[in-house]
């Protein structure tokens, strides 16, 4: 059991979903995966299936149509999970603060653990965000284990 849980923190799998931003952050997240920033050296892997993911990377100011998709993705991700909101519009709506079809931030729909600033967020900032997210994941994991032991 310890091995599996430790492996999860050492090698988090990332699910990336865009909820209607401008794409700038999305390509920066992809740039993180490519040789110059190469987050795979930390054991991170971008995958397409929420059921395998530990970290959700969400960009964009969530619109009404996307809201349910996002809720479903969040529900499908197994616990413990960490949500990173990447970019200004994922945090507060940013430049889309007065757009009619946006909800103004990921935290209006699902709980967010880490915010990454910038528009578009730089790859360095995204790596910082992932590092912080891993600490959160570890905290959640240890908290979760204590809770489970207490329940037993």
């Amino acid at each position: 059991m310890g091995f599996l849980k430790r492996a999860r923190v050492k090698s988090p799998w990332i699910l990336h979903y865009c909820t209607g931003g401008c794409n700038g952050c999305d390509i920066e997240i992809l740039a993180c995966l490519t040789p110059l920033y190469d987050v795979e050296r930390f054991g991170m892997l971008n995958i397409g299936n929420p059921k395998h993911a530990d970290v959700l990377m969400i960009t964009g100011p969530v619109n009404w149509k996307n809201r349910e998709v996002l809720q479903r993705l969040y529900a499908q991700t197994p616990d413990p999970k960490v949500v990173i909101a990447v970019g200004a519009c994922a945090a507060t709506g940013g430049v889309f603060h007065n757009c009619v079809n946006t909800l103004g931030g990921v935290d209006k729909v699902i709980p967010v653990d880490v915010y990454v600033r910038g528009c578009a967020a730089r790859p360095e900032a995204i790596i910082d965000g992932v590092v912080l997210a891993l600490q959160k994941l570890e905290e959640k994991r240890s908290g979760g284990v204590a809770h489970a032991a207490g329940a037993r």
């Binding site: 209607g20 964009g60 619109n63 757009c99 079809n101």
Partner: peptide
């Protein structure tokens, strides 16, 4: 489509 719609044309009238 519609998963990325924000309503920029409307916001442009208010800015």
């Amino acid at each position: 489509i519609g998963y990325m719609h924000r309503g920029i044309e409307k916001a442009a009238e208010a800015n």
